[in-house]
Design a protein around this nucleic acid. Structure first.
Lengths: 213, 213
DNA sequence: TTGGATTATTAACAACGTTAAGTAAATTTG
DNA sequence: CAAATTTACTTAACGTTGTTAATAATCCAA
């Protein structure tokens, strides 16, 4: 059935058109600027057409949420080449921060906003698939760090949660503009966050280092 | 001028009426449920009357934001009685987490949502007064910890930022429902967060402890 | 008592998410 | 090929939102 294939392809193309337009508006002025009518205007369709491709606005956000995780995965593509698990953990943190700074709108959808989560909760109590995958990778690294003695033995889940909380705390404070007391100039934001990450890694690391004791 | 005083008092009363109604709606179903008409209905005034007491909706949220900080200050009232600065730091963290869990809507306004910040930015580039005060207290405690050797000497501002990031990361992930992988049962949320906080304090603490090295 | 300020209301605007009904074209079926 | 049906899209509309303009009622001072 060549015709059906072509039709499905076209359908996917319009879908992508909608998502691209949504992301554009999203990037430009954030959450509040994304409006069904605005999307429709941008792709030159009528507002109701959008509803033929997405059930509602939240479903668009959910799709963007997933795309965000794909983008982040690309960021971490070359992570496997780092053999020392603690160095890898550190690099994961740096990538996380870098991704967040470069894609604040995506980051919001992925880790801060409630909307996508509520959407996932509705859809048959399904899990937070995208996020859980990322968490699993973190946890594996933590386990490896413990096995090789870079981190003190402890509940890997608890330690993973703690590490994630730390970098997420940094990111979300930065994105939501609570750091002006700490970071006066904008160009100092990333360096400061990396310095904070260094401090953190240095503190949780077990082993020979200059820290007096 | 007894009359003017009475009038001002009345004005403040209606203001309080509006804020109470707003908070009630806010508590019940969160951000999205707070609507100018809803507030007006609750206090049995017409919607436009609200605008005589607040310039716009964001100004109401800004007011609630400030009230949130007052509420949090009450939480920390008896903190001065703790003399050991590290124990005090730990308690500060616990209070922070406890406050957030008990008042997620306030917490959102204070530390997560963008709206109040944008409002403050508009109003003549004024600082984030409420937040900066809380940060100052944290920083003082950190300095004291360093002086007494509980924390390794370092830039106090950087360390304060890092500590705050950690607890805020925990809180915001919890509030925005990203922790279901870590915390299956709801009643385990607070214990898990406190365990994570313990792990953190234990790791940044300098001094004699069981941690092998 | 008159007159200006204060306080509240009604009516309305533009923009929003979303649904119902209708149209025109493409495709399948006889 | 012609009729029936499905697909892709639009127009019109509903109810709700934040907010403003115009207006009425109330209050206090002169």
């Amino acid at each position: 059935m060549g015709i059906q294939e072509r039709k499905e392809k076209q359908k996917l193309e319009v879908r992508k058109l909608i998502l691209d337009a949504s992301m554009k508006l999203f990037m430009e002025e954030g959450f509040r600027n994304v409006t069904m009518r605005g999307i429709a205007d941008l792709i030159e369709y009528s507002p109701t057409t959008v509803y033929l491709y997405f059930k509602d606005k939240d479903e668009i956000f959910a799709a963007l949420h997933d795309i965000g995780f794909q983008k982040m995965a690309e960021f971490n593509k070359d992570l496997g080449t780092i053999h020392n698990p603690l160095v890898r953990l550190h690099k994961m943190g740096e990538n996380y921060v870098q991704f967040g700074i470069e894609n604040p709108e995506y980051y919001s959808l992925m880790f801060i906003d409630s909307e996508p989560m509520q959407k996932f909760a509705e859809e048959g109590c399904e899990e937070w698939k995208s996020g859980d995958g990322a968490i699993a990778v973190l946890q594996e690294t933590v386990v490896e760090c413990m096995q090789k003695g870079y981190l003190q033995d402890d509940d890997p889940l608890l330690v993973s949660l703690s590490i994630w909380s730390f970098v997420h705390g940094l990111m979300s404070l930065a994105i939501r503009e609570r750091l002006e007391k700490f970071v006066v100039q904008k160009e100092m934001l990333l360096p400061t966050m990396k310095a904070s990450l260094n401090w953190f890694i240095n503190n949780i690391e077990v082993g020979d280092r200059s820290k007096p004791r």
